[in-house]
Design a protein around this nucleic acid. Sequence first.
DNA 1: CTTGAAAATAAATCGCG
DNA 2: CGCGATTTATTTTCAAG
Lengths: 157, 157
Amino acid sequence: MDAIDIKILNCLKTNSRQNASAISEQINLSVSAVIERIRKMESNGIIKQYTVVLNSAQTGNDMSAFISVSIEHPKYHQNFMDKVTGMPNIRECYHITGEFDYLLKLEAGSTAQLELVLNSVKSIDGVSHTHTLVVLSTVKNEISGMPLLMQNLKGFK
Amino acid sequence: MDAIDIKILNCLKTNSRQNASAISEQINLSVSAVIERIRKMESNGIIKQYTVVLNSAQTGNDMSAFISVSIEHPKYHQNFMDKVTGMPNIRECYHITGEFDYLLKLEAGSTAQLELVLNSVKSIDGVSHTHTLVVLSTVKNEISGMPLLMQNLKGFK
DNA sequence: CTTGAAAATAAATCGCG
DNA sequence: CGCGATTTATTTTCAAG
C-alpha cells in the first residue's frame, strides 16, 4: 500500500459507486492502473466490503444505546458472543478492559423496542450486571478508516 | 419505501458496487425499475452514501478505545463537539445520558498513538472527568442498518 | 413496471515506455 | 509498473405497450 492506493481508497470511501475512470481523473492515474490497484486491494483483503450508509432517521431506527455487560464466569463468554451476534438490534459488540466485559451498541425504532432488546441482553446466560447509556444525539460517526490513513502522508488530493 | 426498496438496499449493503443489472437479477425486477428506485432513494436522502469498509488490521489502525467524558459546564459543549469533530482519531462521538456527557470511540495504530489521543481529549477545555475502556477485540460490527429494516418484512430475498 | 433497441460508457487487452 | 489506443462487453437511456 502506497500513497496512490490511499488516494484511491479515499475516493471509494467518499463514493464507492464511482467507476475507475472517475477515480482516474481525480488522482491523475490511468484507468487501467486504477482498476488494477483496486483489484489488488480487493483480493488481498484491504478492501473488505463496499456498502451503503442509510439515513437511520428515515429508515426508522434512529434510537440507540450502549450497554455495558459483566459476565459472571468465563464459561459463558462464547454463548454470550454467539447470542449477541445473532441479534439484529445489536449492531456492535466489543470485548473491553475494565469493570465490564463487553460494550454493546443497540439500535431500535422506539423506546419500547429498545426496552425489549435491553431485556433480552440481560437475560442471556451468565450476564450478571449491566449498565445502560442512551444516546441523545450522534455528534460524529465516521465509518471506515480513511482520515487516519492519511495522517502520515503529505500530499494527497 | 416498500419491500422492494428494502431488497435493493440489502443488495447495496452487501456490495454497493454492483450495478443495476446485477441487482435486477437478484430481486426479479427490471433494470430500469431498479435504477429508478435507487435514484429516488439517493435523492430523497434514504441513501446517504456509498462507502468502503477496510481491513483495519492491514491499514494499521486496529487499536481502539472508548472514552467517556464529563464536561464541567454547558458553555463548553459546543467547543468540545467542534474539537472532537476535527480529530481524525476520534471516529465516533455520542451525547449520552447518565454519569458522563459524551462517549467517544477512538482508533489508533499503537498504544503510543492512543495515549496521545487520550491526552488531547482530556485537555479540551471543560473536560472535567474521563473514563477509558480499551477494546480487546471486536466481536461484531455491523455498519449500516439493514438487518433491522427487514425484521418487519416476511418475504425478502 | 416491462421491454428492447440505440446510444453512451466502461472494462479488458496488449504492445510499448 | 504505468500508459493509452483499440477492441469487447456492459450499462444506461428512452420510447412504447
